[in-house]
């Protein structure tokens, strides 16, 4: 009985290996998309509920707690504080949305503005999920930006959702240029929250704080989009090129909306 189980399990492992070999180099399988629909619906629902609860807590509960504490002495001041808190929340949202609209009006290649509904729950990829998909005109390899700069590129598209691979992912490559010195290089993610520019000659003059923008030579990313700023420059003995560390201009951990541009 024990050997039979082991044999059956080995057969199962061989089948999975066969499946992996069969898929190598082939295009995306539609079967992979099936579990994503309920997952993204759940993510959208949870995000919507969380945002509403967060707004209620910021606007009412905290203030009620303060109101109870200062009830006898500062009644009027607490009412004004409640109103100020509500206005601040609206103001922050308006500022964010205004920036997005300005960005949209400045460019004629905007496809959609989308909200971020989730992130890759595994730790292998720096990927975010948005609430727009093919029915909104989004296609694979379209660019995602924010008013602060470049966020990434569309990787996978479903009917009403899509995933974006961020510039901090190890598999992301962007052709860039130093804005001041005009030196070109390739920027790659480190899998966490920074990027490195490669192929910068050792004699190049690069300063901390120099702006890094897309060069457009890779024919994927439009040129002139801000990527980040140089945070560190160093080289190791024997290396042919400088190592330039770049801090992305977009806070990719707190990103809430993105603008999708045409290819």
């Amino acid at each position: 009985m024990l050997n039979k189980r082991l044999i059956l399990f080995f057969i199962f492992i061989i089948i999975v290996f066969g499946l992996l070999s069969f898929q190598g180099g082939r295009k995306d399988s539609k079967i992979l998309d099936l579990p994503l629909y309920p997952l993204t619906w759940l993510e959208e629902g949870i995000t919507a509920v969380y945002r509403d609860l967060r707004d209620i807590f910021n606007k009412y509960i905290l203030i009620v707690g303060i109101y109870d504490e200062n009830q006898k002495l500062r009644r009027k001041l607490n009412e004004l504080q409640m109103e100020l808190s509500q206005l601040k929340e609206i103001e922050n949202e308006v500022k964010r949305l205004r920036k997005l609209l300005e960005l949209k009006s400045q460019r004629n290649d905007v496809v959609a503005i989308a909200r971020v509904i989730g992130r890759d729950p595994t730790n292998w990829f720096q990927v975010i999920w948005i609430d727009k998909g093919s029915q909104d005109g989004i296609e694979k390899d379209m660019i995602a930006i924010t008013p602060d700069g470049l966020a990434g590129r569309v990787r996978k598209v479903l009917k009403d959702t899509a995933s974006i691979i961020l510039i901090t992912d190890v598999n992301s490559s962007v052709a860039v240029r130093m804005q001041n010195s005009r030196i070109e290089g390739i920027i790659e993610g480190d899998g966490k929250d920074t990027c490195y520019v490669k192929y910068i000659p050792r004699d190049a003059v690069i300063r901390v704080g120099d702006r890094v923008i897309t060069s457009g030579v890779d024919m994927v990313y439009p040129r002139g989009i801000v990527v980040g700023s140089v945070s560190e420059v160093f080289y190791r003995e024997g290396d042919l090129f400088l190592t330039v560390k770049v801090r992305p201009s977009v806070d990719l951990r707190a990103i809430e909306e993105v603008v999708i541009l045409k290819k």
Binding site: F9, F12, I13, L19, L20, L36, L39, P121, K156
Partner: peptide, 29 residues
């Protein structure tokens, strides 16, 4: 357990969107 691991592995493979199999294999083992 292996059946449940295969289903969960398939869901995780879908989330990653690259291949069917890596998480099925690892979770089943």
């Amino acid at each position: 357990g292996v059946a449940y691991a295969s289903i969960c592995g398939f869901i995780l493979d879908s989330v990653q969107g690259i291949l069917i199999g890596p998480n099925i294999l690892s979770k089943s083992i």
